[in-house]
């Protein structure tokens, strides 16, 4: 039995208070998005809607839907490709180390900490040169490339837990590097793929800097479209809040159903080596 550092009522009081702070934006978002525009006045901000009105969702959906589709086209291939690449790299860097491979790994890792502003000007020139500027395939390329460090890190740490003996006995049975990857590593790394997949899905879905600089108008992903909602002349807060919820829904749902894996990714991505 552990002794308790706090008296129980006090403990729950503090936790509840903090929870209210964390949930406050959700409450405001929900009540605002369910109000018709004439009820969205500053003074009534905290009041519950007098009548439930879904029209702001309809309006937000009409404006965001094409960008929502863009983002799907972006996120699915980018997530799959970067997970696959990360898994290959992680396999090599954990089970087929060569001289200097640890420094290669460190060199790759640096790429996940850089401010992307420091590569943006050449990147855009490069994408123009290869005709991928202002296109979803261009954004896929960008997310796959700059996803290499984090996905490699996650898979390398993940594969470190697979015992060396398994690889060695497979080698004695005559299996080569690819057979081992295909028949031993991949089946054992389903969880790894789920964790990395969720992580990349969430990050790419939520990303803004590449999206706003590499694409314009119709090609833009959801977060740029959401940001543009507030650029209009009259700020329709109800539509904006409905839009924010719609844009956040996919990652929120992923968190709700697969939150455990999301948190694992969070911890895996931060604990080095």
């Amino acid at each position: 039995m552990t002794a308790r550092a706090f008296t129980r009522p006090l403990l729950y009081l503090i936790l509840t208070g903090l929870s209210l702070f964390f949930l406050m934006p959700v409450y405001v978002l929900l009540v605002t998005s369910l109000k018709p525009l004439d009820q969205v006045t500053l003074a009534q901000m905290w009041d519950l809607p007098k009548t439930i009105d879904f029209s702001s969702y309809g309006e937000a959906f009409t404006k965001l839907a094409p960008h929502f589709v863009n983002t799907l086209y972006l996120v699915v291939p980018a997530t799959l490709l970067s997970a696959l690449l990360g898994s290959l790299n992680g396999y090599v860097l954990s089970k087929w180390r060569f001289k200097g491979s640890d420094w290669v790994f460190t060199g790759l890792l640096f790429g996940m900490f850089i401010p992307y502003q420091s590569i943006l000007i050449p990147l855009i020139q490069f994408l123009r040169d290869i005709n991928l500027y202002n296109s979803i395939p261009g954004l896929i390329l960008v997310h796959v490339v700059y996803g290499i460090p984090i996905t490699t890190l996650m898979f390398r740490n993940f594969y470190a837990s697979i015992p060396k003996e398994m690889i060695e006995s497979a080698q004695i049975d005559g299996a080569g590097i690819f057979k081992i990857y295909q028949h031993i590593m991949i089946p054992l790394s389903i969880t790894g793929f789920v964790v990395v997949g969720i992580w990349q899905f969430t990050n790419i879905w939520n990303e803004f800097l590449f999206a706003v600089t590499i694409t314009t108008s119709e090609q833009q992903p959801i977060m740029v479209a959401l940001q543009n909602l507030s650029g209009s002349q009259i700020v329709e807060w109800n539509v904006q809040m409905a839009g924010a919820l719609l844009a956040a829904l996919p990652t929120l749902l992923v968190y709700m159903f697969l939150g455990k894996f999301f948190v694992r990714g969070l911890l895996a991505g931060s604990v080095k080596g």
Partner: peptide, 29 residues
């Protein structure tokens, strides 16, 4: 409780920005 503290991490900074702009509007929020 854990989920209440963790879920904002699954959101985009853009979503957070939009919502908190509304919350910190000086004449309301």
């Amino acid at each position: 409780f854990r989920n209440i503290f963790f879920f904002p991490m699954a959101l985009s900074f853009v979503v957070t920005g939009v919502v908190w702009q509304w919350l910190f509007n000086p004449s309301t929020g």
